[in-house]
Amino acid sequence: MEETLETIQARHRKEQRDLQSRITNKKKNATKKTRKGVNDECAELERQLRERQERELAVFNGEADGEEGDGGDAADGKEDDGTEAISTRLEDASLSDVTTAVTTKPTTEKHPQPQQPPAQQQQQPAGKKRNRQKERLARRAAEQEAAAEAAEAEAAGMTDHRSIEKTYLLREFEANDLVEKEIRPDGHCLFAAVADQLEQRRIPLLPVSEAGDSSPSSQPSAPQQQQPPPPYRAVRKRATDYMEAHPDDFAPFLDEPLSSYVPKIRDTAEWGGQLELAALANAYGVEIKVVQDGRTETIEPSTSGNGGAEEQPRERIWLAYYRHGYGLGEHYNSLRKKG
């Protein structure tokens, strides 16, 4: 049955939709390495379909002359047969066949390459299946490597605060004839460093009345005797006892009630700071020297808290304060006199 103009145009629209669908799928499955070849292939498919449809319309309208054939078929009166053959071949060709033709032969090639036998064509895969998990892992590794390089570049341009801090501290240690005693960075470092300083000067950590409770005569027999608490526990208790006895000196500087702050300092690994140093200086009646980056701070006991002890020479204890030297944050070490 001879096609009318409406049926030809309808068929052309369907062929264009089908071709566009194949092109979309092909581009969607393209990788970075195959994208250029896929784009060239799609352009070739569109060109072939457009030329064929134009020829069909020209034949239907009687505009094609005897010289517009395929391979000289028009000279033999076979123009319609050649057009029909081209249409049939393009409609029946699969996307993998066109891919093989375009990728193995440039568009400027004049002589066609010999086609492979059908059996050999069936053995070749249509395309390598994408490994999306491998692509994600590779992309993540590349992002991590780029982040590491950016961090290194940023670190190279940053001030080395740790080195500057250590240089100053070592200079102060030498000037004051001090050596550093490392304290474990476990949250108790301030109280453990003060305990080490007090023990070096034979200053009792607890008042005599409280220390008597732990005398050997009051302890259980050897099989039942428990390990004594670490010295920092006694220092924590002494600091909080003083804070509870002088609430007006500390409560205004807290963001929470003193009643909840004191148990936290006494019974947990909460870090100590400026308030605890002031409490310890008054509780033990000592002068505390804190060597830190750029300066040495002195914390002296107040007159009201010494009970007359200021008339006698005060003991002086030394601490080293690190802001940058430890990965967990701020830290205190004990500083002992040489020899």
Rank of each mutant, 00 (worst) to 15 (best):
A278S: 12
S96A: 15
R52K: 05
E270I: 05
A74R: 04
E149G: 05
H331A: 02
P185T: 02
L206G: 02
A148C: 00
Q224L: 14
G82Q: 08
Y284Q: 05
L205W: 01
K237E: 05
T103P: 08
N306M: 15
A138R: 06
E68C: 12
E41I: 00
R130L: 07
Q48D: 14
G69K: 05
E2W: 07
L5I: 10
L205P: 00
Q219G: 05
L19E: 06
P230D: 06
L319T: 00
E256D: 11
E199K: 11
Y321W: 00
A30K: 01
E135T: 07
E84Q: 15
N306L: 15
E210A: 10
P112C: 08
L319N: 00
E330T: 13
L206H: 05
I86Y: 09
S334Q: 04
H331L: 01
G187L: 00
E109K: 12
G294F: 02
P204N: 05
N176D: 12
G82N: 05
L328Q: 11
N131G: 08
A193R: 02
Q219I: 03
L178D: 00
A153G: 06
Y326H: 08
T24S: 08
Q312K: 14
I23M: 07
P207C: 07
G127H: 08
A150G: 02
R17K: 06
R11V: 10
E84G: 15
E180H: 02
E311F: 14
A281T: 06
S302L: 14
E172M: 15
S221Y: 11
L5T: 05
S87T: 15
R336N: 11
K28S: 10
A281N: 02
R130H: 05
D213Q: 13
R11D: 14
Q312D: 11
P252W: 00
L137W: 04
E6T: 05
S214N: 13
E270M: 14
R140P: 04
Q16V: 03
T99L: 13
G329S: 00
P301S: 10
K36I: 09
A119K: 09
Q20E: 09
V208T: 10
A85L: 14
A269Y: 08
K110M: 06
N131Q: 06
P230K: 08
E46S: 12
I183D: 03
